[in-house]
């Protein structure tokens, strides 16, 4: 039987930050890479993001944060995923992330941090490699 396996990605903007450009570009870009992107829009709480990730059975969560609140928001989401037994979901973070915070995020278990100038192709490649999936 033909396999139809698709990489599913949740693109989410936690917090009140309303700058959507990066999230939009990544959503469109990953769609054109053949991924199924669930876009949940602005002002998502960490609980909503975790719940969506579980129900949608996504392989990846892409968080976009430009307000400087990336450390606390990401931490809450990582904890929420763990509580639901979904800590195998890859989490990436994009936005305005100072160099020294990158390390902190990686220590939390974030699989990749993407700042201004990142290529969609690189994001897609990282996801494919980490998942070992090609769709």
């Amino acid at each position: 039987m033909g396999q139809d396996s698709k990489i599913r990605v949740l693109v989410a903007k936690p917090g009140l930050d309303g700058h959507e450009r990066g999230a939009h570009v990544v959503a469109y870009g990953l769609r054109d890479e053949g991924f199924e992107v669930i876009y949940t829009g602005l002002r998502q709480t960490p609980e909503q993001i975790v719940s969506a990730a579980v129900q949608e059975d996504v392989d990846v969560i892409g968080l976009s944060i430009l307000s400087g609140a990336h450390l606390s928001l990401t931490k809450k989401i990582m904890e929420g995923l763990k509580a639901k037994g979904a800590n195998d979901v890859l989490v990436t973070v994009g936005g305005v992330i100072p160099e020294e915070d990158k390390k902190t995020l990686e220590e939390m278990g974030v699989a990749g941090v993407f700042t201004s100038g990142s290529k969609i192709k690189d994001i897609a490649a990282l996801i494919r490699t980490k998942l070992g999936k090609n769709a």
Partner: peptide, 22 residues
């Protein structure tokens, strides 16, 4: 801050982590 810009007080759950930040 973003909470004020979005019409939330500092004690709102939406304001968590945002108070006095930007």
């Amino acid at each position: 801050d973003l909470a004020t810009q979005c019409g939330y007080d500092s004690d709102s759950s939406f304001a968590e982590g945002e108070v006095g930040r930007v």
